[in-house]
Nucleic acid binder design. Structure first.
Lengths: 195, 195
DNA sequence: TATTTTTTGAGAAAAATTTCACAAGAATAA
DNA sequence: TTATTCTTGTGAAATTTTTCTCAAAAAATA
């Protein structure tokens, strides 16, 4: 689904107004039927004999995915990855704005990174509740991920994206998504060794 | 599959020698049958009535996935994400060693990042061929990703992990894997808006 | 206007994945 | 030794996902 947005935004930039499922499929490297099924899932957006209107389709997808608005995020763990996330343009552009950055290292607290002052993690609840925070990003070392998650839960955050390479335990009403680059490299190693 | 490794390494650290598919499933948040099917795929590693020997299982999985050895990697694009990848301990620990870093920005060329001197991307072919490079990582802005991929293909690299949020075109014998964090945040936004 | 071409939407078919259910092997207890 | 308990490996069943196929709608052409 994210691929569709990526490709459609590219088309918009090239000022292409209409695209068929076949052409879109080519660029996304999937089957045309797949695309039609996916898009039909949230309404009839195509026009038979014509294709899909790029701009309308993009709006519809974004609305459907819930990214037609801003999502307030906070980040815990201002290491290398944390800094990369804080400076990442792409996220803010897509409406995922990292509003605050936390770390428990006294040497980092007070430092400014990409326009944010690094705050002590213990002040997370207090600080995060001043603003409605939707999503928490964890980029701590694995051994501190659970504590970061606990702080986030105490602040009432219901969505956690965990970049630390470890599982975390959360209450039932909290959604966790795991991101681990090593998995991609492992998958690559596997594919290269089984030609 | 990557989850299994993560959890098993945790168990190894806790010096737990044996684990049942049920317990492993619990920690990996999957179905026990799933685990047994997956593991049975590359041989009979369990012992009925007992479970799986953590250390043996880990070795077997790593062998099967092709990560029982080192993989030489290079990176193109020394921006924020590139720096985070260069400094990322996890990757090197898993045997994915980033041997060289390239960038086309004259201000970055010559700079040292995590023990690597940043080299001009035009010298990629020449430099990479001095050592057998297995995998190329792209962490450039999207508009430079294709060029980075071309350089990698010219150097004979057959596996590309693309962190830039754009599709790239490669010859048939090259494997590409796409990594895009925004997709994870999009998926989170979707799940939070459809409770 | 009628015919041909294009392309969607959706039901049917096919393929892949996940889960169930249980025989069989291994350990423990009686 | 024999019975009981545990837990794997695997064929069958269920579910999900993907692909195929084609009627129907829209545009282009004659």
């Amino acid at each position: 689904m994210g691929v569709y947005i990526q490709v459609l935004e590219g088309l918009l930039l090239q000022e292409q107004q209409v695209i068929s499922s076949e052409k879109l499929a080519e660029q996304c490297e999937v089957n045309p039927s797949q695309i039609r099924k996916d898009l039909a899932y949230f309404g009839e957006f195509g026009v038979r004999g014509v294709g899909y209107y790029v701009s309308d389709l993009l709006k519809a997808i974004k609305y459907f995915l819930g990214i037609d608005r801003n999502w307030n995020c906070i980040l815990v763990g201002v290491g290398n990855l944390g800094r990369a996330l804080l400076r990442h343009q792409q996220l803010a552009q897509k409406g995922f704005q990292i509003q605050m950055a936390f770390d428990c290292d006294p040497f980092k607290i007070g430092e400014r990174v990409a326009g944010h002052e690094v705050i002590c993690t213990r002040r997370l609840k207090e600080k995060a509740q001043q603003m409605q925070i939707d999503i928490g990003l964890i980029s701590t070392p694995p051994e501190r991920a659970q504590r970061a998650a606990n702080h986030m839960m105490q602040a009432g955050i219901k969505g956690i994206v965990n970049f630390a390479p470890t599982r975390i335990n959360v209450s039932q009403d909290v959604i966790v998504d795991y991101v681990d680059f090593s998995n991609h490299l492992i998958s690559m190693a596997f594919r290269l060794s089984h030609p």
